[in-house]
Design a protein around this nucleic acid. Structure first.
Length: 268
DNA sequence: TTGTGTTTTATTGCCTCC
DNA sequence: GGAGGCAATAAAACACAA
């Protein structure tokens, strides 16, 4: 690269300046930056209309683009902290104080906003990622807990079944329960467990089947209802949108509604 | 010293607002 | 229509490892 003159590289997309003998595109201007007194840096000429300044070229040899001094950057940063948008008056004042062109101040703020936005995006990404990781961790522990409860349930059920004479079970199923094909497998297990765990036995199953669940000491009441509802073979109404397959829970609910004197009438 | 990646300064083109 | 903002981009300046 030759030295001594500034010219535009015609092939350069951004009108970047070079030092050399070229003068065809040389439009001239004036000094843009007043660098520190003791700085050996030379100013950078930016806008084309600011380029031509014979006196300046006689005195100095401008080189391409220059960085702002640390003092200039410091003041710009302070200004940016108070307000990241630049109104015309402030821009002019800042430019004057820093010995820069207003355009340079505007460009600096523009680039600074872009950097801030990128940082903000990074911060947001980190926050979202940590939230996601936390949720994932919770989800995993819930799934494990659910699996554990399922295993417990199956284990208890097997124990109950192994102690119950087959004929007794069959007889009760025939006389007291709704048609077996209308009940979900989970309910069948519940009935058996409920029966087995009941201390007095007589009060558990009476003529009104649905009271079984409402009897106050139901094994599955409340605490396990969610788990049971999620158990395989039990479809919630939300899942299939219907209860026309003889769901026991629907039956219980209907029975409760019918027994409720007031209050529930809206449902009947 | 040199190659390479990152940061900074600046331009361009498009869009919105008044 | 002009001013100003923003995204995309160029290119110089800088940092740093080999």
């Amino acid at each position: 690269m030759e030295s001594g003159r500034i010219f535009f590289d015609p092939s350069c997309h951004s009108n970047m300046l070079f030092i050399g003998n070229g003068d065809s595109a040389f439009r001239g201007g004036k000094s843009v930056m007043n660098m520190e007194e003791n700085s050996n840096r030379r100013p950078f000429f930016s806008a084309s209309e600011e380029l031509y300044d014979e006196e300046y070229y006689d005195e100095q040899l401008p080189v391409k683009k220059r960085r702002l001094t640390s003092e200039q950057v410091h003041l710009l940063e302070k200004s940016f902290e108070t307000e990241n948008k630049l109104e015309p008056d402030r821009k002019t004042q800042l430019a004057k104080n820093l010995g820069l062109q207003p355009r340079q101040v505007a460009v600096w703020f523009q680039n600074r906003r872009a950097r801030w936005k990128n940082k903000q995006l990074e911060r947001n990404y980190d926050q979202l990622k940590s939230s996601y990781d936390s949720l994932l961790c919770n989800y995993d522990s819930i799934v494990k807990e659910n699996d554990k409860l399922k295993t417990e349930l199956i284990s208890l059920t097997e124990k109950v079944q192994s102690k119950e004479p087959a004929e007794e079970s069959a007889a009760r199923a025939k006389s007291e329960a709704p048609p077996e094909e209308a009940q979900p497998p989970c309910f069948q297990l519940m009935m058996k467990v409920e029966d087995r765990l009941s201390t007095d036995g007589s009060a558990v199953i009476d003529d009104n089947g649905p009271q079984l669940i409402d009897s106050g000491d139901s094994y599955f009441q409340n605490d396990y209802s969610g788990c049971v509802a999620a158990f395989d073979g039990v479809n919630s109404e939300e899942e299939d949108g219907s209860d026309d397959n003889g769901s026991y829970f629907s039956n219980v609910f209907s029975a409760a509604v019918q027994q409720e004197p007031i209050g529930w009438s809206i449902w009947s």
